[in-house]
């Protein structure tokens, strides 16, 4: 090849390399799994991302077994909540005992709007089996007597339930707790950037790989392809509860899965969607359910007393509210004017 041709070839190759390079970005390592009764996407970026994702999958699998109230077969080895639900007392791992202790405290702090003993009511409505039904008023009043978190005691590593029909369901906090555990694991492994989406239960680990904030869209309960608003931030858990997530229709009435522990029936609080933003996934998860049950006024009062989280509320009559800690971080959808709740 003549010198000139070499020059031309070299220049062309450089152009191609530059063009190819322009399209490169760190797409991260991703796993999509089915666990805790939902679809989960786990993405880690940077060096060691592959190992981090594998470790996260293993950790979620472990927690799914440990904390699930559902399961098949008689083998309940490593399944603490199933073991507790099979009798009135059981020895459990220190981890389960600590988590349940923390969850019971949250049940108390929310005045019972969150109740870890909701299992019999969820079962009666068919939300576990998918064989949906509407319990009679008599059945609901019987269920009310069974749903009472105060009937559960945790002493060291043993859990006692008072009454053989009192059963636990950690579904309202399990995914949030799992997100916290994975985020901690990733930080220990040196992952500085990652995104967990555990069935719409989002946890942003660090900033994005380019150093900017993550953006999280809050789903519009009336348009599955639309959002109410976008929220930006890092190192945060964002959990949304809404009636649209799991529901069924009977005789023209739609019944959803967020049950009010006081009535054991689907909560009708005037809220269509509740999003909690907090540094703890556990707190965000548990409070999203509790705040949904509380309704706007009680939720606003509850937030003013605590202020260790932020929230975005969307009412049945299409009003958007957000707490002052989120001001400047939320971009509402066109046509929505959020009202800011002050402390």
């Amino acid at each position: 090849m003549r010198n000139g041709s070499v020059k031309a070839f070299a220049l062309s190759a450089m152009c191609l390399c530059l063009l190819a390079g322009c399209g490169q970005e760190d797409r991260g390592q991703t796993a999509s799994i089915y666990a805790m009764d939902t679809v989960m996407d786990l993405t880690a970026y940077g060096e060691g991302a592959g190992e981090a994702v594998d470790a996260a999958v293993a950790e979620i699998d472990r927690l799914d077994k440990l904390l699930s109230a559902q399961g098949e077969g008689r083998d309940v080895d490593g399944q603490d909540i199933r073991r507790v639900n099979a009798s009135t007392s059981a020895t459990v791992s220190q981890e389960t005992a600590a988590l349940l202790r923390e969850t019971l405290a949250l049940c108390q702090e929310t005045g019972g709007a969150l109740d870890v003993t909701i299992y019999p009511a969820m079962e009666a409505w068919g939300f576990y089996s998918g064989e949906y039904r509407v319990p009679s008023p008599e059945e609901l009043s019987q269920l009310e007597a069974l749903v009472n978190y105060q009937a559960v005691e945790v002493a060291d590593d043993s859990i006692v339930t008072h009454g053989d029909q009192v059963k636990l369901d950690l579904g309202a906090v399990g995914k949030g707790y799992a997100a916290d555990q994975v985020a901690r694991l990733w930080k220990d492994m040196g992952v500085t950037s990652g995104l967990l989406n555990l069935g719409g239960n989002v946890c942003c680990v660090g900033p994005k790989p380019d150093g900017s904030d993550w953006t999280v869209g809050i789903r519009d309960p009336e348009d599955e392809n639309g959002v109410l608003c976008q929220l930006s931030g890092r190192d945060m858990a964002v959990v949304t509860s809404g009636a649209y997530q799991r529901n069924f229709e009977r005789d023209g009435v739609r019944y959803h899965h967020i049950l009010d522990p006081r009535t054991c029936a689907p909560a009708r609080s005037g809220l269509a969607s509740v999003t909690i933003v907090a540094s703890s996934g556990f707190l965000a998860d548990g409070l999203s359910t509790a705040v949904y049950v509380m309704g706007l006024d009680s939720a606003a009062e509850f937030w003013r007393q605590r202020q260790d989280f932020d929230m975005i509320l969307y009412t049945d009559d299409h009003q958007l509210y957000l707490t002052s800690g989120l001001a400047g971080r939320v971009t509402p959808a066109e046509g929505l004017e959020p009202q800011v709740l002050d402390g």
Partner: peptide, 8 residues
């Protein structure tokens, strides 16, 4: 063209 993740 949407956000990085969706909550809900």
């Amino acid at each position: 063209r949407g956000p990085d993740a969706y909550a809900g």
